[in-house]
């Protein structure tokens, strides 16, 4: 029951979806769309599971007064505030019938003035660390590292007005040497070739892994027996 039933479910669902792709008639016709919708709904339950787990972990941390426990209270307060604003549509101009994220609702305000600044600042913070990490990692010690560095530099320079200002003197038949043109060429030719090779490689990996999962060869997603 604990391991066989999940394996059978995976086998049936996976096989049916593959067959549905090749037999676009009843009863397989729109199974792909239906299962995708089921998937989305179960994913929302996974969000609820994640939220429940988050609350459990932080309540435990607060009750046991573990290190930095006051910040767990911040997490729970932020969670409760945004959840209440979203689920009950507090301050929504259209009331409970209005769109959850409509402009003017508390939920939208929290999104714009709490969620967006936090998310954007977190990612913006990475600009500094990517810069310093790349300085350490890509010091042109090998030919490969030099190629990577030059390509990155051309792309960076080519996407700024400074790049055009610097090489704007190349005109006529030398126009291709302008940094924005070089950046475009790198993106459209060697980058495209590399992306395609990677995509084909990933596709082969996904196809083989999907087959392993459907046939029950790959079982790690089931976890340990004592789970």
């Amino acid at each position: 029951m604990r391991r066989t039933v999940p394996l059978v479910i995976t086998l049936i669902v996976g096989t049916v979806l593959i067959v549905a792709e090749f037999v676009p008639h009843k009863p397989f016709g729109n199974l792909g769309d239906k299962f995708s919708m089921y998937f989305d709904i179960i994913a929302v339950f996974a969000f609820i599971l994640g939220g429940g787990n988050l609350v459990r972990v932080h309540i435990t941390k607060i009750s046991r007064k573990k290190a930095d426990w006051p910040f767990s209270a911040v997490t729970l307060a932020g969670f409760a505030l945004v959840l209440a604003a979203g689920l009950f549509k507090i301050g929504n101009p259209g009331g409970i019938r209005g769109d959850v994220a409509v402009v003017g609702s508390l939920f939208n305000d929290l999104y714009i003035f709490i969620f967006t600044p936090l998310q954007a600042s977190m990612f913006a913070l990475l600009a500094f660390y990517v810069g310093s990490a790349s300085y350490r990692a890509f010091r042109a010690k090998t030919v490969e590292a030099t190629i990577l560095l030059v390509a990155a530099f051309v792309i960076l320079l080519g996407r700024t007005p400074f790049g055009l200002w610097l090489t704007g003197g190349f005109t006529g038949s030398w126009e291709f040497l302008q940094v924005p043109n070089l950046a475009n060429w790198i993106m459209d030719v060697p980058n495209l070739a590399g992306q395609r090779a990677i995509m084909i490689g990933i596709a082969l990996g996904v196809i083989s892994m999907s087959l392993r999962i459907i046939l029950g060869v790959e079982r790690t997603y089931l976890g340990q027996d004592n789970d």
């Binding site: 939220g51 910040f71 997490t75 409760a80 505030l81 959850v100 936090l118 600042s121």
Partner: peptide
């Protein structure tokens, strides 16, 4: 740490709310 913890709680609740009303 304050901002980081707030982000975790707010983003979990945001996606839960969106999932509930949109899906």
């Amino acid at each position: 740490k304050f901002a980081e913890h707030l982000f975790v709680g707010a983003s979990a609740a945001y996606w839960m709310s969106m999932g509930f009303w949109k899906t």
